[in-house]
Design a protein around this nucleic acid. Structure first.
Length: 326
DNA sequence: AAGAGATACAACCGCCAGCGT
DNA sequence: AACGCTGGCGGTTGTATCTCT
């Protein structure tokens, strides 16, 4: 063990808090292309103002292709309870027995309702009416009025969860879609992320199937390439889009699929020019608004990653917005 | 309709183990 | 053996959303 442990990153230069769709996209694009051999250096290389740990966590808990989102089934919940009895709070160990579920997710589920349920179940088990072996205690072992209320609440939560889109942002789903990827056995059919997840099934650490390798067999309807290579400025522009910077970006993207709106904006050349002008304005790159737009300019400057000349990222800068192939 | 409280979940933090030098 | 770095883990927190009064 080393002493005088160095901080994992410069806390003053990293962004914290919820991830924006643009950041997600950037991280996914980078990992899709380069894999994640080194989390520490990844944010810098990907042009993300995030701690490597944060990137890793985001990838593992949310963006990773094989992560199964959505409600836990009664079977899964029962499994968690059993596994927790065996392993205790060893969430990663428990997660390894539940394909597609992350330790964080399991931990949350446990702390929110399974723990209560489990303790109540234990109490019930202590009583003469012992049904500890019955599965899915959520629906079968509720006895008291309080428990009934809890069950009703759980049902409501599940119902609202069912309405709530658990999938990743629509715009992220278009990355590398290929018909042969669609059905995957690991994701349940009712899991909205299944098709999405399959799109990244070829990503694993150092073994990355690059987009370029599949370009030849790709048609427009099955693969839309996110221009990770384009240029860091593309991402700067992308991040600066108000489209994704609402107070509730997830809802914004999940429900309104604003990327399609963005795509529509590019439908005509005039609109493209207008859009570009708007962006330049926002970034303080135009004469009319230039030096006065300091915050945005600063934002842009701060966003520039340190470019390693030996790396081959961002080699192409699209000549005009219509070259953005979202 | 509005405010308070409860809940769910994403994200952060600090520590530790393992590995390479 | 000591050190330094990194990934991984588990506890905790912050906040958005939901439910109740």
């Amino acid at each position: 063990m080393g002493r005088g442990r160095a901080p994992c990153c410069d806390k003053t230069k990293v962004k914290k808090g919820p991830w924006s769709p643009a950041e997600d996209l950037r991280l996914m694009s980078f990992i899709q292309k380069h894999g994640h051999s080194n989390w520490r250096s990844l944010p810098k290389q990907a042009g993300l103002l995030r701690c490597g740990k944060s990137c890793r966590l985001r990838w593992i808990n949310y963006l990773r292709p094989d992560v199964k989102r959505g409600n836990f089934t009664p079977e899964e919940e029962e499994n968690i309870i059993k596994l927790h009895n065996s392993f205790g709070n060893k969430w990663s160990k428990i997660a390894s027995h539940l394909p597609g579920r992350t330790d964080n997710e399991i931990k949350n589920v446990w702390n929110t309702h399974l723990k209560k349920r489990s303790t109540k179940k234990t109490k019930v088990s202590d009583s003469p009416m012992d049904d500890s072996d019955s599965p899915s205690c959520a629906s079968s072992s509720i006895t008291s009025h309080e428990d009934q209320n809890m069950e009703i609440r759980d049902q409501r939560v599940q119902e609202s969860d069912a309405k709530k889109p658990n999938e990743k942002p629509e715009f992220l789903k278009v990355i590398s879609r290929h018909p042969s990827d669609e059905p995957r056995e690991t994701a349940s059919s009712d899991s909205p992320t299944s098709s999405y997840a399959s799109n990244f099934s070829n990503i694993s650490g150092d073994n990355v199937t690059r987009l370029e390798e599949t370009k030849g067999s790709t048609t427009s309807e099955d693969k839309i390439e996110i221009p990770f290579e384009s240029d860091i400025d593309f991402w700067t522009l992308f991040d600066s889009l108000d489209l994704f910077q609402t107070t509730n970006p997830e809802q914004n993207v999940y429900e309104n699929s604003n990327v399609s709106s963005a795509t529509k904006m590019l439908d005509s050349e005039d609109e493209c020019r207008e859009w570009l002008r708007y962006l330049e304005n926002e970034l303080g790159l135009t004469g009319e608004n230039g030096g006065d737009n300091l915050p945005n300019t600063e934002q842009k400057m701060n966003f520039e990653p340190e470019i390693d000349p030996d790396m081959d990222y961002f080699p192409i800068w699209p000549s005009s917005p219509q070259n953005f192939c979202i």
